[in-house]
Structure formats: structure tokens, C-alpha cells
């Protein structure tokens, strides 16, 4: 999963580049050895400012989002609606590039607090994700214990199936 990943045992303020590590005592670099199983992108970076009078200010500043330049955001009155209502998209369960944006790497759907959708769209996206998962279109977004390959599923689940979005609850 691409994204901003923070190691659990690392301090949240670990800088992406180690150029500011010189401010730490010499033995600190051994404690802050970077250990990542995936590409690491920190939320914050450390900014060290020398002020007049000998004071040193160390701040944690939020980094800009890596997706900022890809964001589709309509201007004006439409921009006030939820992201999907504003774009007026007819999302199908086969549009996995859109659906995967609302999901975690284990296949669960992100909450409304994160997605910012209205309740209607959030419910629709949840159903579409279920459809896409049953159709085997997103086998890489699944719990680690799952079989991943749709053709190895049990019984009737291994065969191709598609869904009609008109059957969704209103």
C-alpha cells in the first residue's frame, strides 16, 4: 500500500532525511536506526531554528500530502458537496481504481470521518466494494490470511460473477 507509513516503535517526528540528525548526541543515531518493511513517508519533519539570544526552537511541521497534485476538486458551489456528489460520478463495481481509494490494504472500507462522504455515498461505496470483492476484482486488498487468487476460492465462489448496480438498496 502506498502511503504515509510510520514504524510503530519509531518516534513520530523522525525526519525523512537524516540531515538534521547532527543535532542529536552521537549515540542517538544508533537508537534511531531506520527500520522499514515498506516505503516510509513521514507525516511530519523536524525543523530546527536558531533564534537570536541563543534559543533553539525545534518544531514538527506537517509535510504536504503526496496526493495533493492528483486531487480532483470542483470549484464553486459544487465543491461544498461531498467528494463523490460534487463530481457526479456513476461509479460501478468494476471501477476498482476509484473503489480502492476508499479502502485499507486489508480490504476494509475507510470510515466517513476519513473519506468525508455523505451517508448515502458512503453506503453505496460500501456495497460496491462488497460487489467488487465477491467478483474477485480486488484480490490484493484482502486480509493476510486470505487465499488472494479468486480461482482458488471454495465451491461456487471460484467462478466469475458480476453484479447489477440497480439492485443496490436505495
Amino acid at each position: 500500500m502506498l502511503g504515509r507509513v510510520i514504524g510503530t516503535f519509531l518516534p513520530r517526528l523522525l525526519p525523512a532525511t537524516h540531515s538534521t540528525l547532527a543535532t542529536y548526541p552521537p549515540h542517538a543515531s544508533a537508537l534511531l536506526r531506520p527500520l522499514h518493511t515498506s516505503h516510509s513517508r513521514c507525516l511530519k519533519e523536524i525543523v530546527v531554528e536558531e533564534q537570536e539570544g541563543g534559543d533553539t526552537v525545534v518544531k514538527g511541521q506537517y509535510l504536504p500530502s503526496p496526493n495533493a497534485h492528483l486531487l480532483v476538486k470542483p470549484d464553486g458551489e459544487a465543491g461544498k458537496a461531498c467528494p463523490l456528489c460534487a463530481l457526479d460520478l456513476d461509479v460501478k463495481h468494476t471501477d476498482v481504481l476509484i473503489l480502492s481509494q476508499f479502502m485499507r490494504s486489508d480490504g476494509s472500507v475507510l470510515p466517513r470521518r476519513v473519506t468525508g462522504l455523505c451517508s448515502k455515498q458512503q453506503r453505496r461505496i460500501t456495497w460496491l466494494v462488497i460487489m467488487a470483492q465477491k467478483a474477485g476484482l480486488m484480490p490484493n486488498l484482502a486480509p493476510a490470511t486470505s487465499k488472494r487468487d479468486p480461482s482458488r476460492r471454495y465451491g461456487s465462489k471460484k467462478f466469475n460473477r458480476y453484479f447489477d448496480e440497480n439492485t443496490l438498496p436505495k
Binding site: S65, L70, V96, L97, G136, L137, N140
Partner: peptide
């Protein structure tokens, strides 16, 4: 239909995003 794991990584990364995560 095309499966999500059959898209090239470059296309996945450069696809337009609907919303941005909280900071």
C-alpha cells in the same frame, strides 16, 4: 473487467484521487 492487481504500478499511482486524507 480488469483486476486491481493487473494494473501497472505507475497507472495506480497517477490515477486522479477523489479525496485527500486528513493531515
Amino acid at each position: 473487467p480488469r483486476r486491481l492487481d493487473h494494473y501497472p504500478q505507475e497507472e495506480l499511482e497517477n490515477f486522479p484521487k477523489i479525496f485527500d486524507w486528513p493531515k
